[in-house]
Simulated assay, not measured.
Amino acid sequence: MPRSKRDKDVSLTKVKKKTRETKVGLVQQLREAVDEYPHVFVYEFENMRASKFVQVRQKFKMNSRFFFGKNNVMAIALGKSQNDEYANGLHKISQLLKGQCGLMFTHSDKDEVIEYFRELKDADFARAGIIAPQTIELEEGPLEQFAFSVEPQLRKLGMPTSLVKGVIHLTQKFRVCTEGQVIKPEEAKILKFLEEKLSVFHVNLKAYWSKTTGIKDIA
């Protein structure tokens, strides 16, 4: 009688002893989720914000479970090939676990989940290290939106400023960031002062798997 896929041994020979128990536990949790939930989505983040993702978890807390990070362990749990996959077609999900991504197990309707994430876009302040989506420039002259007390901070960040009768002035035209270039720490702080939100938190669904249809790409 052929051996069930669910009887496959977990191979974690390369992990350290102190983390082995945790990783074996994660494998078990993932396999239990496969058994419990009919649908699995692979998702990836754009401009990850932990506080924003908490809202996503709250939205689906009654009927879903999320796993994030530890791509290799998740792949081991699902199976990296057709020979060791935990359920039919799951090895194809494992192949998509690259970079900043995760798995959503859910009882929710497939179309409802897809529509929710397509509409989920939340603007936020850009962090240092991301690519600027546009160029932001300030013209020479008064910056009346700022209190005079922040002038030393702006000058320290590299802005050519001076106080004129208690009002902060730019002494020359100043480029805060340039489209297509990496935002520097000082630029990120200036953008926050200016309340310019150039970053958009978004969760992109890469693929969908169900016990009845197998894996499907999400356009």
Rank of each mutant, 00 (worst) to 15 (best):
S4C: 10
S4R: 15
K5F: 03
R6Y: 07
D9P: 11
K16L: 15
T19C: 03
T19S: 09
R20I: 04
T22Q: 13
K23M: 14
V24Q: 13
L26H: 04
R31F: 05
V34A: 07
V34W: 06
H39C: 05
H39A: 10
V40N: 03
E44L: 01
E44N: 07
M48G: 09
R49W: 07
R49F: 04
S51M: 07
K52P: 05
Q58V: 08
Q58E: 14
K59P: 02
R65Q: 15
F68V: 14
G69S: 12
K70E: 15
N72Q: 14
M74I: 07
A77D: 07
G79S: 10
S81N: 07
S81A: 05
E85S: 10
Y86D: 05
Y86S: 04
N88Q: 13
N88M: 00
N88V: 02
G89R: 06
I93T: 07
K98M: 00
K98Q: 04
G102L: 01
L103T: 13
F105K: 00
T106H: 09
H107K: 13
S108A: 15
E112N: 12
I114R: 01
I114N: 04
F117P: 02
R118A: 06
A123K: 12
A123I: 06
A123G: 02
A126W: 03
G129P: 14
I130C: 12
I130G: 04
I130V: 15
A132K: 10
P133L: 06
Q134I: 10
I136P: 00
E140F: 09
G141F: 11
Q145H: 04
Q145R: 12
S149W: 07
V150T: 11
E151H: 02
E151P: 01
R155S: 15
K156M: 09
K156Y: 12
L163C: 03
H169Q: 03
H169A: 00
T171C: 00
Q172D: 11
K173F: 00
C177V: 15
E179N: 08
V182E: 12
V182K: 13
E186I: 00
E186A: 04
I190L: 04
K192H: 06
F193K: 09
F193H: 07
E196Q: 14
L198H: 12
F201V: 08
V203Y: 08
K206W: 00
K211G: 15
T212V: 11
T212C: 01
T212H: 12
T213P: 01
T213D: 15
I218S: 02
A219D: 14
